[in-house]
Design a protein around this nucleic acid. Structure first.
Lengths: 254, 254
DNA sequence: CGTACTATTGATAGATATCAACGCTGGTGG
DNA sequence: CCACCAGCGTTGATATCTATCAATAGTACG
């Protein structure tokens, strides 16, 4: 059975068996982190890149008045700080929401991964999908009202969890508080609560005990104008084979 | 004199002379686009990657009710759609704000660029800086009020234009309307106007005739909690030389 | 069984959108 | 050269949404 990282990266393209084996090794050395804890293992080489294997984590930025913005939910299969490989100063916090299984990947392993032609492209793809997601969140925060923002978030989480096999039909575990939903959508806790009730009263969702069931997927998507294209679940830019081969060289040793 | 693309990429690291010459060639075939026009040249190979050489452009996403969110300002030296190289479906619009000089770069040239060890890393860096900027915008939209959002935006534009030599001290051309400021900050046109007046009355800015002067840089930054670190103007992750060498191989042919 | 979050509800205040009107400016055609 | 027009900036009045404050009720957990 493929691990979750493999499973996610294969949304881009099928990986060679050898790459998969390599990923299995990468993922082998995982550790547990309790809920609401920063993902910064003491003694960890600071250059390690982290990956979530199970549980919910988030990336957030804060202001001095205590307000914080969750800028990404990190689901199983997601890298926490891949960008730290090139960029220096870490200007945001990465923390667990629920208890998580996390992998710390050393720079050398990242280098090995990036050098492989197909795997390297898959990592590039994953990074660009993250960027695309940020753009959609910006649209969400800037132009939709609270209820629609939350609806849109739920639609996104649904697709993302589905694509790594963590959705049970149209229901899935959502181990986050209403306050955290608010921090990610720019809405106060109280107003999140009221917006959720509105969504419930419309028969669109059922949410309790850390589990969300989307009762009317079509309508929830329609009302929030959710279009899953921005998640690029159908792989990357597939041009003709020759160009593919060339792209293969892109991040690979000759 | 270095062209603007070179100038920007050298914020990451000094480029070899050969890379610079290559960039000069890349940038040579530019064309003009009038204000408020989509950057989609008819007959252009759709895979071309575009780059702004002069003027202001933007990337935006829209909702069916006509609301639009500008998710990035594209300044001279910025790529418009580098991600299109890997990702397929274009889920956003790229349009000029002022008249612009634009370069269309064919896929093959991008491949050549990415293959060069230093230049390839510089492009990766630029892409990650864009992502970092998106995160900061998310914080801006989600957690700051209108006046602070606009102040923060001005601080960002100031630094970005400065770093490509387009700021005249603390003043620079800002050829965009108040409506466009609103579309980027998630504020209505009317409220942008009032927020600007507030900033003016505090003696922080002067804005008229498409030109912005920041009268009190320190205070404008302080009030909006602007910290330029997220723009990563000081290059990338400089570790020891050996790691650098390894990173050099990263995107290069052996 | 306390303790501490988390969820919920009501009341109120504040920020921002929306609507409407008007002046200004730059461009266009007569 | 001047009248007209369209887009932009500005202002005032009003409507909405959302935050904030405060209190209560669940709920998990030691």
């Amino acid at each position: 059975m493929d691990n979750l990282l493999t499973r996610k990266l294969e949304l881009f393209a099928p990986l060679p068996e050898d790459d998969k084996r390599f990923l299995d090794e990468v993922v082998a050395r995982s550790f547990r982190v309790g809920p609401r804890r920063d993902i910064v293992q003491e003694g960890d080489p600071p250059e390690d890149v982290h990956l979530v294997l199970s549980g919910f984590a988030c990336r957030s930025k804060s202001l001095s008045n205590g307000k914080r913005q969750i800028v990404a939910f990190l689901l199983p299969g997601d890298f926490c700080d891949f960008a730290g490989f090139i960029l220096d100063a870490k200007d945001h916090t990465i923390a667990t929401l629920s208890a998580c299984t996390v992998v710390g990947i050393p720079r050398t392993a990242i280098l090995d991964m990036v050098r492989r032609p197909i795997l390297g492209q898959a990592l590039w793809w994953a990074s660009l999908v993250d960027e695309s997601t940020l753009r959609e969140w910006l649209l969400n925060l800037g132009q939709r009202d609270a209820e629609h923002r939350i609806a849109h978030l739920f639609c996104e989480l649904h697709v993302r969890l589905q694509s790594v096999g963590l959705a049970d039909g149209d229901a899935f575990d959502l181990p986050i508080t209403q306050g955290e939903i608010g921090d990610s959508t720019g809405v106060s806790t109280v107003h999140v609560n009221r917006s959720l009730q509105s969504l419930r009263s419309k028969g669109l969702i059922r949410l309790s005990g850390g589990r969300l069931a989307i009762l009317d997927v079509a309508e929830l998507r329609a009302m929030s104008e959710f279009n899953p294209d921005y998640l690029h679940r159908n792989g990357g830019n597939r041009v003709q084979a020759s160009a593919d081969r060339r792209r293969g060289e892109l991040v690979g040793a000759a």
